[in-house]
Design a protein around this nucleic acid. Structure first.
Length: 162
DNA sequence: GCCAACGTTGGC
DNA sequence: GCCAACGTTGGC
């Protein structure tokens, strides 16, 4: 299957790209997603070697902080089974797991956040889910052309900084 | 801190 | 199955 592109949201106060950069192997499990549409992407569609933007939400400034690679596709989110975890869900059982997670590894930490404000100025990203008014989905697909546009924007900003 | 836009819940 | 009430998300 062709490589797909995604966007994963995280509040940096809970888990930031800096946290990922310091994690062993720069690997983390992407757990705690408790939305059915996002769950379906994690469980059914996201494949090993897919790439995803790491987005900082509820941040100053909000924006894309880097790129991660999927190194493990969807498997049951064990935090749902832990009564002491804040994402505990009694309705998710080992026999019939309701929530799923993936493992990702850091690929690129952007030198600077690509802010929503900046992304909104790019015509080619006009229909990107992230920029849609009222968009809150924490796991969302990104079109290949949108992915390339964002990366091109990042590289052009980067070369200007040198 | 505000609040619009969602998603979920639960009575009916 | 409808939908009002409520809770959450997340940019601003």
């Amino acid at each position: 299957m062709a490589k797909k592109y995604w966007l994963l949201k995280s509040e940096p106060e809970a888990f930031s790209i800096s946290d990922l950069a310091q994690a062993p192997g720069q690997i983390t499990c992407w757990d705690g997603v408790r939305n059915y549409q996002a769950r379906n992407y994690l469980r059914d569609d996201i494949q090993i070697n897919d790439l995803a933007f790491f987005h900082h939400s509820n941040a100053c400034p909000p924006g894309i902080a880097g790129v991660v690679k999927v190194i493990q596709s969807g498997y049951p989110d064990s935090t749902a089974w832990d009564p002491f975890d804040c994402h505990y869900d009694a309705k998710s059982t080992v026999a019939n797991p309701r929530w799923f997670m993936i493992d990702v590894q850091l690929v690129t930490r952007f030198e600077e956040i690509l802010t929503l404000e900046l992304l909104r100025t790019v015509p080619a990203l006009k229909s990107m889910e992230l920029l849609r008014k009222g968009s809150r989905l924490s796991v969302q697909p990104v079109r290949a052309d949108e992915y390339q546009t964002v990366m091109k924007l990042y590289r052009s900003l980067n070369s200007r900084r040198q």
